[in-house]
Design a binder for these strands. Structure first.
Length: 577
DNA sequence: GCCGTTTTCGGCCCGACTGTTTTCAGTCG
């Protein structure tokens, strides 16, 4: 049983407990544990088998949950969960996805009306049976009815890159509202999460009505979900929710901090405040006086808010309550920026499945100011992409030799290849050909359903090939579309470390592979990370900044990243002087 | 269910908005 499966079981148990009306802190304990396990780069099963390690050392795992993990790993069983599943049909959990319907109301519906599916619930609403329940009314019934459709389409989170475009449109639209002094976008967007579930907008304005009225005029506006004195929520045509808050200047920093989150980071912050005899909310930081009254002491800027707690300002990308509080003690690293990158070492041309010619890609890279690029078309195994065989590859490299003369002084072009790791193991082109290149990337494209052992062996084998420099998109996941393949990243990292090789952070917004947690783990092990566009056309080179956002979430600095260095410096890292 | 220099019990973030209520519970972020 792998970590994702264990985490899913804990999450499910938390859902069921919540539905049952269990103590909310107990529910949270299961969710916290699920999160810890989900983000772990080491397998729980490995820890269980290693007498030198203890599960209880993990954040949020105590004696009880450690035992449950052990039983899960050893027997695959989770008696408590199975018992609850017998009591509560799984289908009722779908009700919790209806906006405005939480565990309490859902439980009443289930118990009083015996309803367990969305279809039955719809029927009951149409029969006006729901409004008769205590605590329910016609409005609630209507809300449920219109929410059933939303629940059926399930949760949809959009790529950060797409959220970024929406944010630009919203910013431009809201800026023109009268009396709006400031606009900021908070939430998971500001933290740079790879996907964004809703958009949080913060404004400072003379009166709240101006920005709220303006938001209702947004071209993609569909309906108002709620509107009060300081807060408004709307739904857009594509069902994306936008939350707008209007706050006064003295609370602006506190509100920005609060609504940026994450929830876990804020829970931690509030705990720290409490220990200092302070209270923190979206209006500011307050000192609790002897008589119980509260005195405002900070709130105008985020720096003031954190400062009041004797903390430095936290880069938003780090606010996940992972280890940023530990980092704060010694000072935050200077996180990487897109300007730090001096080259792009993964891109394709029309020789395979790219859209632009070799020279067009070079010209576009010069325009970006890069010192060097690597041309890395596919190898022959990727037949659908017209992958290169040895002959065509060597011809391309000869062409690159010529172009290096032509562009001398403007950019250096590296002779590269994205070489497939074959299903049975081994590289797609002969070693003696690979050895003639400057920069060989190894990738898994086929056989993604193989066992963990097989895939791990393939990647480790590739990294041991002296010509291979880096493994691209090491887990193969496509966000919202395809799960990562089974791979023992620990073993991959170990092998990369021993052989002075690199791992990639593929900057394509659908990939972002390795993810933030894994990038951080690679950094901790001292493995350099290459951030590359994997561009298949000129525009495709622009995705680099999405990779940078992910890299910042991983806490990466300039020195952790391969292509912030000169090509000479990179060769040194590879031990090729 | 976790956690601990207030340490084995008693906390665990906190407020806006809505609907169904006459003072509050549920939901959400």
């Amino acid at each position: 049983m792998n970590n994702a499966q264990i985490a899913a079981k804990f999450e499910l148990l938390a859902d069921l407990l919540e539905f049952q009306g269990a103590n909310s802190f107990r529910v949270r304990a299961y969710r916290n544990a699920a999160r810890t396990i989900q983000e772990l780069s080491q397998q729980i099963s490995d820890i269980v088998e290693d007498p030198g390690q203890k599960l209880t050392d993990l954040e949020g795992i105590g004696k009880d949950l450690a035992k449950k993990c052990e039983v899960l790993v050893e027997t695959g069983k989770f008696p408590q969960l199975e018992e609850l599943q017998k009591q509560i049909p799984q289908s009722v959990l779908a009700m919790l996805r209806i906006p405005g319907l939480g565990p309490k109301k859902a439980a009443v519906i289930y118990k009083e009306l015996g309803i367990a599916t969305l279809e039955d619930l719809k029927q009951a609403c149409e029969d006006e049976r729901v409004r008769a329940l205590k605590g329910f009314g016609a409005k609630t019934e209507q809300m449920i009815l219109s929410g059933i459709e939303l629940a059926a389409t399930a949760e949809q989170r959009i790529y950060w890159a797409k959220a970024d475009q929406l944010v630009s449109r919203l910013r431009e639209h809201l800026q023109s509202a009268p009396g709006v002094e400031k606009i900021d976008f908070a939430g998971s967007y500001r933290r740079g999460k790879e996907t964004v579930g809703d958009i949080d907008v913060l404004t400072m304005a003379d009166s709240p009505s101006a920005p709220m009225d303006r938001l209702a005029e947004f071209p993609e506006f569909q309906e108002v979900i709620a509107r009060g004195d300081t807060k408004m929520s709307i739904r857009l045509e594509d069902n994306m929710q936008v939350d707008l808050r209007v706050v006064p200047g003295k609370s602006y920093g506190a509100a920005l901090q609060y609504f940026t989150g994450s929830k876990e980071h804020n829970v931690k912050i509030r705990g720290i405040a409490k220990q200092l005899g302070l209270k923190i909310n979206e209006y500011g930081v307050f000192r609790i006086e002897e008589d119980g009254s509260e005195t405002y002491i900070a709130g105008e800027t985020e720096e003031d808010v954190y400062g009041a707690l004797d903390l430095p300002w936290f880069p938003p990308e780090l606010r996940e309550n992972r280890d940023e509080f530990k980092m704060a003690e010694t000072g935050f690293p200077k996180l990487i920026t897109v300007e730090d990158l001096v080259g792009d070492m993964h891109m394709h041309t029309d020789a395979t499945d790219g859209r632009n010619t070799l020279e067009e890609m070079i010209e576009a890279s010069i325009a970006k100011g890069y010192q060097y690029i690597a041309i890395t078309d596919h190898s022959k195994r990727v037949s659908m992409a017209n992958g290169l065989d040895s002959e065509r590859l060597l011809a391309q490299w000869k062409q690159i030799d010529k172009l290096n003369k032509k562009y001398d002084g403007k950019i250096q072009i590296l002779k590269g290849l994205e070489c497939d790791i074959l299903e049975q193991g081994g590289m797609d082109l002969p070693d003696k050909v690979l050895a003639k290149g400057d920069w060989i990337i190894a990738s898994v494209h086929y056989g993604q359903n193989q066992s963990k052992q097989q895939i791990t062996d393939r990647i480790v084998g590739a990294l041991q090939n002296p010509s291979v420099c880096i493994v691209a998109h090491p887990t193969g996941r496509l966000i919202n579309r395809r799960d990562p393949y089974e791979v023992d990243l620990d073993a991959v990292f170990q092998c990369a470390k021993e052989n002075h090789k690199f791992v990639e952070l593929n900057a394509n917004p659908a990939r972002l592979d390795l993810n933030d947690v894994h990038c951080h783990a690679a950094k901790e092990r001292g493995i350099p990370i290459g951030i590359n566009s994997d561009g298949h056309k000129i525009d495709g080179l622009d995705v680099m900044r999405f990779g940078i956002v992910q890299a910042r979430r991983a806490g990466l600095t300039k020195k952790d990243v391969v292509n912030t260095r000169s090509w000479k410096g990179i060769q040194k890292l590879l031990g090729r002087e």
